[in-house]
Amino acid sequence: MLRVRNLKCYYGKIRAINGVSLSVRPRELIALIGANGAGKSTLLQAICGLISHWEGEILFEKVSLRGFKPPAIVQRGISMVPEGRMLFAPMSVLDNLRLGAYLRYRRRDHHGIAEDLESVMDLFPILRERAGQPAGTLSGGEQQMLAIGRALMARPRLLLLDEPSMGLAPFLVRLILDTLVRLKEQGMTILLIEQNARAALQIADRGYVLENGQIVLDGAAGELLADQDVKRAYLGKDYREFYEGRA
């Protein structure tokens, strides 16, 4: 569904992504894990058209996304939940959700929008309660739900999430990730970017590990969870062994 080949992204002269290739097949949940500054968000922004200076190839449903502006990419069926939620804080929860469906309003798909509003609010009942409230007054967990709901309102076929677990209590992380599993069961394709590697790999089908702008490891999520290198670097285990090994 999504295929990235030898992608290179630049910020001025700094190369943030250095030849990344990955693929996401329909109905898959893929985890992309890596530390701060590994290039995860850059990769995502390139897919969404928010960065236009990239080399290589990004194909979505066999069509190259080169030169596409963000609205055209949303139109094709890719929706993003940005890092740090990035809600429109002074606007109401309902207006935030409606903004997610901006392009569909333009096509006058009012019936479909009303349907999706209902299904998003069934997915996150708290949003129904808070519908009239400014998005900025929600708690962190509720904001993340709203950010996901807003992305779903575009009725995407591929959902990209940038660190949805950031700054959330463990039980909220669980809740958000369970929702992703449910979405996947309903037929959504998901690319999940996370620092919280364990949580992400537990729900993913496959995973990629990004380090310094390159994919250093990839494979089935279970294999990655068991991998010694991954454990050491991202799962916070085996530290004793690590230190002893050096000593």
Partner: peptide, 23 residues
């Protein structure tokens, strides 16, 4: 209208507004 919402969204964050599909 949706245009009004989009304008306020631009006010709040142009980058995210673009990611919502707003030109």
């Amino acid at each position: 209208s949706r245009v009004g919402r989009a304008l306020r969204a631009i006010h709040d964050g142009e980058h995210v507004a673009a990611a919502m599909g707003i030109d």
